[in-house]
Amino acid sequence: MSELAFFAQVVARSTVRGLDCSSTPDQVTAWLGDYGENLRGDLMWRDYGLVEFTWERPSRKEPWQGCRFTVQCHRLEHGPTPVPTFAGLRTALAELDYEGK
Results as ranks from 00 to 15, higher is better:
E52W: 03
C21E: 15
D47G: 05
S14G: 10
G100Q: 04
C67M: 04
F69I: 02
E62R: 15
Q72S: 14
P84F: 09
R46D: 05
P58A: 13
L39G: 07
D26Y: 06
R57N: 09
K101Q: 12
F7C: 14
M44R: 10
A5I: 05
E99Q: 13
L32Q: 07
S22G: 08
L76V: 00
D47H: 10
K101H: 06
D34Y: 11
P80R: 10
R40F: 08
W55A: 02
E3Y: 12
T91V: 07
R46S: 00
L89Y: 11
L89K: 05
L32G: 05
G49C: 06
Q9A: 06
D47L: 05
D20R: 07
D47R: 00
V83Q: 09
W55R: 03
G49Y: 05
L76H: 03
F7Y: 12
R40Q: 14
D47M: 07
W64N: 01
A12K: 07
N38S: 03
D47P: 06
F7L: 15
S14I: 02
M1P: 09
R60N: 14
T29N: 07
R46M: 06
V28F: 00
P25Y: 04
C73D: 11
E3Q: 11
M1K: 13
V10Y: 09
F53E: 03
T91E: 15
Q27C: 15
S14L: 08
D26N: 04
Q9G: 11
C73M: 05
M1L: 15
L4Y: 04
F6P: 02
Y98W: 15
W64G: 08
R17Y: 12
A8N: 05
D97C: 09
N38I: 04
N38Y: 06
V11Y: 03
R57H: 00
H74G: 09
D42K: 05
S2D: 12
A92M: 15
T81K: 09
G41Y: 11
E77V: 11
V83F: 06
G33N: 07
R68Q: 07
T70G: 06
T29E: 03
R13P: 00
Y98L: 10
T29F: 03
G79P: 10
A8E: 03
E3M: 10
R13F: 08
T85R: 10
S22E: 09
L39P: 09
R40Y: 05
G66E: 10
G79F: 03
T54A: 02
D20A: 07
L96R: 10
H78T: 10
D34R: 12
T54I: 01
L32M: 04
R13H: 13
P63V: 01
V28N: 02
Y48T: 13
N38M: 02
G36N: 08
D20Q: 01
Y35E: 11
L96H: 11
D34I: 04
V16I: 06
L96E: 08
W55Y: 13
E77Q: 15
T54N: 01
E37K: 12
L19E: 08
T91C: 08
M44E: 10
G100N: 14
S23H: 09
P84D: 09
A94Q: 14
Q27P: 01
R75T: 10
A94G: 02
F6Y: 02
L32R: 12
R46Q: 11
T81A: 07
